[in-house]
Write a protein that binds this DNA or RNA. Sequence first.
DNA 1: GTATAGTGAATGAACGTTCATTTATCAAGC
DNA 2: GCTTGATAAATGAACGTTCATTCACTATAC
Lengths: 217, 217
Amino acid sequence: MRKANEILHEDRRHQILDAAQLCCARTGFHQTTMQDVAAEAGMSPANIYRYFASKDALIAGMTERDRARILQDFASIHDAPDMLAALEGLARKHLIDEPCGAAVMALEIWSEAARNPAVGAMIRGIEAAVHEGLCDVLQKLKQQGGVAPGVDLDAVARLIGTLVDGLFKRRALEPDFDGEWAVAAVLAATRAALAGQIAFNPTSAAVRDDVLHAAHP
Amino acid sequence: MRKANEILHEDRRHQILDAAQLCCARTGFHQTTMQDVAAEAGMSPANIYRYFASKDALIAGMTERDRARILQDFASIHDAPDMLAALEGLARKHLIDEPCGAAVMALEIWSEAARNPAVGAMIRGIEAAVHEGLCDVLQKLKQQGGVAPGVDLDAVARLIGTLVDGLFKRRALEPDFDGEWAVAAVLAATRAALAGQIAFNPTSAAVRDDVLHAAHP
DNA sequence: GTATAGTGAATGAACGTTCATTTATCAAGC
DNA sequence: GCTTGATAAATGAACGTTCATTCACTATAC
């Protein structure tokens, strides 16, 4: 009896996902046809169905792989000596080195996540994991004495994550997006937040007044 | 002779755009059919074509109206007495009061802008105008003495805009999104930036070292 | 009576998916 | 090592549906 070639099978899956990613960055999930993907992958449309049960499954597979890579990146810096430098490296990779299509892909994934329950759940899961990872990094920074006392690390992580989301969006849409500025901005905001110079908590009126007056010297 | 009723015509256009917006927030631009829009608007698909030349035109009309409203909001605070309060009001409106579908719509528009040249150009135009408006507001704040010397207002505006973009994305995707926190975060970041506590400029090595050492005391 | 507002059914192309079929590859038997 | 057969891998041509768009037609207002 002849048995299936596992390695080839996995290779073909990646080949198809690569093709799909290219197509989708170019024309979007729902404007990309299976024939487009097949042509890009250099095979017949029918053959794709040997590797993915449906177009939806292909979309899900693509988003999963795309986001998992980000998560993986995060895991890889867990024991870096200089946390801030590692963070900068991560920002640099995703905001400068990575091809711009990756940012377009992110937009595509986000809008899909807003209404495709399967994709939505996956994205929420991965983003939660990224948030956790970021919190861990900040915690480690704190242990190294790089954080002012009383700083809400969870809020800082949320701020950074949100800022990076916004930067991804702008990278995808602005032709003259400045990646260097983006990386610098993330780091500057992170440093300010960790130094306790961003007063998040809106319930503490005292803090608010404090900063308000600081802004009106 | 009978002449066309301009008012009715404009009303119908809005009625169709409203319906389209509802449908698209629900299922996305390219998964929404003209029959869906027609059903939502309470008319036949054919009738839509009396008001919009094509589905693309309908999409363009929708995005244009949606984004123009944001721009309009910005123009309306131009001569508010308390600029920061006005800014907070704006943030509050779009991050809390407005229905959550508006944020989903924004995601949809972004991903469309990434590959539909017409929509892309429009979005870039409007976002540039919003940036200008924000710069004006900050300039006014500076004249009122609310800004530390040497602060790059353009960079601050970019930071705020990017942060708000990220918050829109999270509002659309996170079921337990905290609007109050979001508004507070925007204001806190704005205040810190205006107080000169966020060191943007990456070209000045001195500043970088300075902050780096501040984070490692 | 004429132009506007609106409709229902039809059209034709596009597209996801299936299926009968072909081609390539491997393992076993000689 | 060569043949053989079974199965994996891949294909091309359909199929059935969906959907944007059109058009002949009705109803309404002036």
